[in-house]
Design a protein around this nucleic acid. Sequence first.
DNA 1: GATGAGACTGCCAACGTTTGCAGCAAGAGT
DNA 2: ACTCTTGCTGCAAACGTTGGCAGTCTCATC
Lengths: 331, 331
Amino acid sequence: MAVTLAEVAAACNVSTSTVSRALTDPEKVNAETRARIERVARQLGYAPSRAGRSLVSGRTDTVGLVVPDIANPFFPPIIKSVQARARDKRYAVLIADTDEHVADELELARGLSRQVDGLILASPRTAPADLTRLAQQLPVVFVNREVEGAGSVVIDENEGMQEAVEHLVSLGHRRITYLSGPRRSWSNQQRRDALAKACAANDVELRELGPFEPQIQAGMRAADLLQSSEVAAAIAYDDLIALGVMSRLTERGMQVGREISVIGIDDSPLSTVTHPMLTSIHVPAAELGSAAVDLLLDQLRDPDSPTPLTVKLETRLVIRGSTGIPPENLR
Amino acid sequence: MAVTLAEVAAACNVSTSTVSRALTDPEKVNAETRARIERVARQLGYAPSRAGRSLVSGRTDTVGLVVPDIANPFFPPIIKSVQARARDKRYAVLIADTDEHVADELELARGLSRQVDGLILASPRTAPADLTRLAQQLPVVFVNREVEGAGSVVIDENEGMQEAVEHLVSLGHRRITYLSGPRRSWSNQQRRDALAKACAANDVELRELGPFEPQIQAGMRAADLLQSSEVAAAIAYDDLIALGVMSRLTERGMQVGREISVIGIDDSPLSTVTHPMLTSIHVPAAELGSAAVDLLLDQLRDPDSPTPLTVKLETRLVIRGSTGIPPENLR
DNA sequence: GATGAGACTGCCAACGTTTGCAGCAAGAGT
DNA sequence: ACTCTTGCTGCAAACGTTGGCAGTCTCATC
């Protein structure tokens, strides 16, 4: 079906080796024959078989990317940047969506492991031991999670969280509710810890509601619980929950940014479509993706490098309209 | 590195053929040895090499998916459903993002073509002739676009558009502005035509602004133009533009759904996070993805099937708060 | 007990590519 | 004229898998 090396070779009256060399290692062959081969190859539309090449080289020039939910707006920017960076480096990207199904994460990763050189995993809930074991079988980089013995790119929520709390305090808030994400999510724990630390440092009372799934619907439910508490400031596990909260509260006739303050995390593009716009902790999604690719390719380049690194990316608060002075301070 | 057939064979004192058969064609081998082989294979962690298999079978069990912009919220649900359906059928998905860069579309598709069995293309702007030619080289299914000689899954915007216009008319609108998408986008042409037809049928005056890129920012610019016209109803090329419009108008102090009516297309999850929520023409994104996979796999199963089909999916209007009675009818 | 059928298994070639090694020719140096 | 180098090319093996073909063994049948 497809044009093979042998066909090009026949058309040029040379051996397949020569064609192979002419196309991959141009210095090794006579300039004149090389030109002829290149011309014929182009003309015949030759393109090397990945399978053949992969069989002898042992590499696939492909990386796998596993995400929990493509539809969660936090991930598309990451996928996009992983894809872009990988393409720059001549790697293809195989994508897999676990649909937030924990049990599938490992199985999927294992399945992928035979057809990729390395894996980028954004799987917040699988048990650490399993991940460590996986990382021993092939190069893996984790996104938004630290794992023993594997490279990872994580978010340092402390900076952003501290700014968020200070922002609320400066407005006059003394109590904050955390709208928790999934219990076993690594990043949920990070965020909660960072918030607890920031609250302690600022002498703020911290409450918690949840857990909630990272979805708008869940945020709407969270709004109901939030409204029946007396706390006027909430920081949500992510933008989706925050947006759901805002949507429901606004629908109920409450003025977000005046009667109640809401802060999200991720600073996804959606933050700007609501009114008021959502104050959110900015997470550098694009950098997250490209850093993950870079880390992975480093590992591929020198297989048993010393210690896989952890890259830590900073966060910062982006203040918009969803936060304001608490009502009790307004009289 | 990885466990091979030969190693399993050695451990079992049988030939590689037998192991191969035991694992892929269980009936052909003695029950007892099969059991032994399966046990050893599992124990050694054997998994077949995709490259080896692919070399002899000529198939890759992988499909390629090319989209113009992963970050555009219209696509993640499609990607998700493509991925899910493909996985059901034991296919992997290779993803590529053209970043709305027309020139890359073809090049990317060609590059992918050597490592996939078939391609799903959501590339609105490449020239039809190029696409037809591509479709001759390998099975291709187009999403949201019809191409000569290739399968495709498209949206029938007529139904939804008609409902949208009728809805606006029933509220009292006699003039509608279309906020156009990219000029050369196939689906933009479809939508505009459908709208023109519906307007003609309902004796409604149709104006047009644009073109606008399918992005929130562009929608915000569109809002400015819209505001300075005297038309109180707008239908946008997609939800992103519509949301941008709403956001900017609300920010300007206008009451969307009262002073001005806005309708989007796609009915993405974001439609529900704004206040008022966005009235939008629902596009069945998940069905789009899975239908595309089904169509493609049909083509793979029997290579030169008669005529590649076009699957047409219906749209319908989802009425929310962003549409209302025009101000001039309120006095 | 010879023959045939049937069940199972092994051998080997093939898929398309890369690469170490050897071969060959031409030219340079003695 | 001989050897040595240099530059180029071909041969053949290898990667891991599958499948056609043929071989072996067992058992039933006459």
